[in-house]
Design a protein around this nucleic acid. Structure first.
Lengths: 127, 127
DNA sequence: TTAACTGCAAATCTTTTGCACAATC
DNA sequence: GATTGTGCAAAAGATTTGCAGTTAA
């Protein structure tokens, strides 16, 4: 694979943020420094980065995909109120064990998704 | 909510199948018995059935949603080869415990998704 | 009768793709 | 110089929505 300025920028952007941005958010953000950056390129490069294992895709039903530079996280919560994606304090090991216990199948990848209210929004609702 | 012939048919179709059909598959299938059934209605009614808790939605990144009449299942595997959705033999309790251990958040729903090869396809690859 | 439901088609949203041009090696 | 990557715009795929007509209560 050949070097590309855009791909490098996109990777740095994902790694430097911890808010799980969408392709569109990444594109908007990077246009400040690379005004002609196109959304198509962002999607293409993100797909490449996911394929080579430098970035993780976080899919949320009915929403645009988010991207995460944290490769070892296999669980997320999606808050229905603030719409943020949050990493839960679930030990990686415990999920891996559940999946590993399934016989015969070949596992490429797995993740645990939780939907509801994040701690911030849950607290606000209780006031 | 008022009775509807279409909604009833759609619910029965989902409950009677165990192959996790898409809205489109449900529509095609039911047109044999209800020729003017429209895909928009199927989507609308499936959303209603999910909301009132009679049907579960199974979302797969990059694929059309599947629908499942089995309400107590919180984990699925998606086979990248045969594209089937399969329920894994993971005890419900073990997933619930992991999720329940997260402090402060309010959980509406959760599920564990596994991607790879189902046992049938994994066996074929090893031949 | 009247409010909910449906069919149909158009719209929406996210993501992919074809193509001509630009950048990398 | 040969290829890979990019920008742009159009296309694709899944799902939603507006509207006029239909149906259940």
């Amino acid at each position: 694979m050949r070097y590309s300025h855009q791909r490098e920028l996109i990777l740095k952007e994902v790694l430097s943020r911890n808010d799980h941005p969408t392709a569109e958010q990444i594109c908007t953000s990077l246009r400040e420094v690379c005004p002609r950056l196109s959304l198509g390129t962002v999607y293409r490069d993100l797909n490449t980065l996911v394929e080579i294992g430098k970035v993780r895709r976080v899919s949320i039903p009915g929403e645009a995909d988010r991207f995460d530079g944290e490769l070892n996280v296999h669980q997320h919560m999606f808050c229905r109120k603030c719409r943020r994606v949050i990493t839960l304090p679930i030990p990686e090991e415990s999920i891996r064990e559940l999946v590993a216990a399934c016989p015969d199948i070949r596992v490429d990848n797995y993740f645990l998704s939780v939907f509801g209210l994040c701690s911030d929004c849950a607290r606000q609702e209780n006031l």
